[in-house]
Design a protein around this nucleic acid. Structure first.
Lengths: 238, 238
DNA sequence: ACTACTGCGGAGCGATTCACTCCGCAAGGC
DNA sequence: GCCTTGCGGAGTGAATCGCTCCGCAGTAGT
């Protein structure tokens, strides 16, 4: 019954694999929608498909697990926001947090599974809390009055999927990834400023490099020597 | 050589088919990215695949055509915006127009084809015009100073793909589609207000119906009688 | 009435990709 | 030496892919 240090290390590795799987699954499901394939998920997680199927009964089960986690995130985030002394600041934090988590990005896959009934009532309650929070943000003078809770939910969904971040993620360059996320953060702040009733703070970080618009068109796999030069241009795509 | 009225009517129908094809192709490519299939495009356009292949050599050729049209839209839009007497208003119009056109949404398919060289230089010139426009919008006091041209391009791409609009489009309900687009328009205005240096106008239209969040989960095809009732809930997906 | 022509839908083709199974391997415990 | 645990990925039939091609409907010409 004793648990050796090796066993602990092994279990830790298992847990890391599991987390990588869930993270990769969320990314691929979000990016590819109903066309997401288990092979793509396993590859993105850096594991074999066998590992995926040892933990989940199939694609639908994995998706359902992600749904539950996402619901939990929403419930926890609304609760935390409601506890914030300043409703408007609490709402802003909630928006940033939810956008960066990708709240709402799993939507197009609902054909895969039906609702996990275990959390549907909790989510409904969280939605009510959220509406209350929006009302309080109105009353405290922080949130502009012509914006509704529905507007904000739509805004979160709208910002959750970022073409820039998704495309740059495929390049696998961590530094670039950080830049892309920082660039999106600026967009979020712009939107938040659009939500504000009054004053305005500076945009965070330094301005995004225009290279962000071109670097992502680089090929993932360098081909033979001499053919590796690819002119990147926004004109490639639009 | 005389052209009869029937022939004219026939050609008009052909032209309508062609436009439906392009419109559907843009929608499907934008929604499904690299997983977009020609069958899906033809079905969305309401034509057979044969009709698609009579006009285009293949998927790549169709995509390339869309790229060229998109480039032309960008070139024309930047030119028009540069001609606007008020740079800030011209920029705002450009943003709204480009977002609703879906400028930037074809990006993930670049593997299909290489750049259509015919317009790459024109696009580069349009990009320069755009940067100039942003500078002028800064100088005239309309655009907040810490926002760059890159920020705005990213913003256009970010708002171009709308989960709400895409999902509701699949329902095929025109009235609902109009509502969804109006709701997105509000998000655009919120973002534009976040870009503004000073004052602020009211959000356009009436607030979006919360039903927008649930209606889109309805099944597309009603099943047998008695099984048609589907509880729609945001909890289904997040 | 008959033929020629045009634009069309979609059945069908081989090739590819899908979700999923299963087996051999590596590494530590006993 | 043998068992257990966790793993990667080749292999499976089924489904879907891009694309071709044929039969059909409607009109013009004779």
């Amino acid at each position: 019954m004793g648990v050796s240090k090796q066993q602990e290390a092994r279990q830790a590795e298992v847990a890391r694999n599991d987390e990588a799987l869930l993270r990769a699954a969320r990314r691929v499901f979000s990016r590819d929608g109903e066309h997401a394939s288990v092979n793509a998920i396993a590859e993105a997680a850096g594991v074999g498909v066998g590992t995926l199927y040892r933990r989940y009964n199939g694609k639908a089960a994995l998706y359902e697990r992600l749904l539950i986690l996402s619901n939990q995130q929403w419930i926890a985030a609304t609760r935390a926001a409601a506890d914030h002394p300043d409703p408007w600041q609490g709402l802003q934090d909630l928006i940033v947090q939810s956008v960066e988590y990708g709240q709402g990005t799993l939507a197009p896959l609902r054909k895969l599974t039906s609702v996990p009934a275990q959390s549907v009532e909790l989510v409904a309650a969280a939605d009510r809390d959220f509406t209350t929070l929006v009302d309080r943000a109105h009353e405290c003078g922080g949130l502009r009055r012509d914006v509704t809770a529905t507007d904000i939910v739509l805004l979160i969904e709208q910002l959750g999927r970022s073409p820039l971040v998704e495309q740059i993620q495929e390049l696998g360059d961590d530094a670039l990834d950080t830049q892309a996320r920082a660039a999106r953060r600026r967009l979020i702040v712009i939107a938040l400023d659009g939500l504000a009733a009054v004053q305005r703070a500076d945009l965070p970080g330094s301005p995004p490099s225009p290279r962000l618009l071109t670097t992502r068109w680089k090929r993932l796999t360098a081909r033979g020597p001499g053919a590796g030069h690819v002119r990147a241009s926004r004109a490639d795509v639009l």
